[in-house]
């Protein structure tokens, strides 16, 4: 699974990094999301899905990396 973030869409709610600071970060310059770990390990996937679903602006999307992943 690969995470993508839409920084245009991000409203800087900080929700993602509050729950998963090892995966998400926040820029000090514009307050928007930054990715620490674009391809999280399998053990993180469920947590990442939860965070993506909670993002207030839907700025976090998840994508299959290859055929195996899909």
């Amino acid at each position: 699974m690969e995470i993508r973030v839409d920084r245009e869409r991000c409203a800087g709610s900080s929700l993602c990094l509050s729950y998963l600071p090892e995966v998400f970060d926040q820029s000090d310059d514009d307050g928007k999301v930054l990715l620490r770990t674009p391809v999280p390990g399998a053990d993180m996937e469920e947590a990442v899905r939860g965070v993506a679903a909670r993002c207030p602006t839907g700025a976090i999307t998840l994508h299959a990396r290859d055929a195996q992943d899909a």
Partner: peptide, 13 residues
């Protein structure tokens, strides 16, 4: 307007 304010409300700040 929101763009100006968001950096003041980051978790670190």
């Amino acid at each position: 307007l929101r763009k100006m304010l968001v950096p003041e409300f980051t978790v670190r700040r």
